[in-house]
């Protein structure tokens, strides 16, 4: 008698466990599907926001930086991967206009041919001075902070300057090479 009761009890317990497990699994699946549905909605909204931000940026460029007075400064790293760039500061006619601290990801991107638009602004035609202060760790493990000055004449129309950073053996001294694009 007690044995049959025990069996019934065991079956009941097993059923109860199965139901609890089923609930637990279905709750887990529901929460997962809720999360993945939210992810899809975020992804769709992200795409709209990015498109919108690009339009706002284009409008901003046309209002704030008319082509005639526009100056853009780009930064690239020379070949060789010999410079662990820490930060770059940019001064235009003695005024600080841009600075950047580099993350490891950004450095990898620069090493692989990435180009950073360090500064975009407006500048009157005529002679100007661009000063850059580079802090970096060279391949010989030395920490260096170097200033480079470049004088240029801004002419009407968009004006772009490429700053190329390099440090070559044997001294691994950071050098900044400037190029003008008219």
């Amino acid at each position: 008698m007690f044995g049959a009761q025990k069996d019934r009890k065991a079956v009941k317990t097993r059923r109860l466990t199965a139901v609890v497990l089923l609930f637990a699994v279905s709750a887990c699946v529901t929460s997962l599907s809720r999360a993945s549905e939210l992810d899809s909605r975020i992804e769709a909204l992200k795409s709209q926001v990015h498109e919108h931000s690009a339009n706002v940026f284009a409008l901003q460029q046309s209002i704030l930086h008319p082509a005639n007075t526009r100056l853009a400064v780009f930064l690239t790293l020379g070949a060789g991967d010999t410079l662990e760039l820490d930060s770059v500061e940019l001064y235009l006619d003695g005024e600080p206009v841009a600075s950047h601290l580099y993350s490891a990801r950004e450095l990898r991107s620069l090493d692989n041919g990435g180009v950073q638009q360090l500064f975009t602004g407006n500048l009157s035609s005529g002679e100007h001075e661009l000063k850059t202060v580079v802090s970096a760790q060279a391949a010989n493990d030395h920490f260096v902070r170097r200033e480079s000055v470049y004088r240029f004449t801004k002419r009407p129309g968009p004006f772009r300057i490429q700053m190329s950073l390099d440090a070559q053996a044997p001294d691994f001294e950071p050098r900044v090479v400037f190029h003008e694009w008219k």
Partner: peptide, 25 residues
């Protein structure tokens, strides 16, 4: 490093950097 970039290198390079710092606009 002495050669300036071409327009193609500039555009590609800007995208490469934008992907790294997540400023896509």
């Amino acid at each position: 490093s002495k050669e300036p970039m071409s327009a193609e290198q500039l555009r590609n390079g800007l995208v490469r950097f934008a992907l790294a710092n997540n400023e896509l606009a």
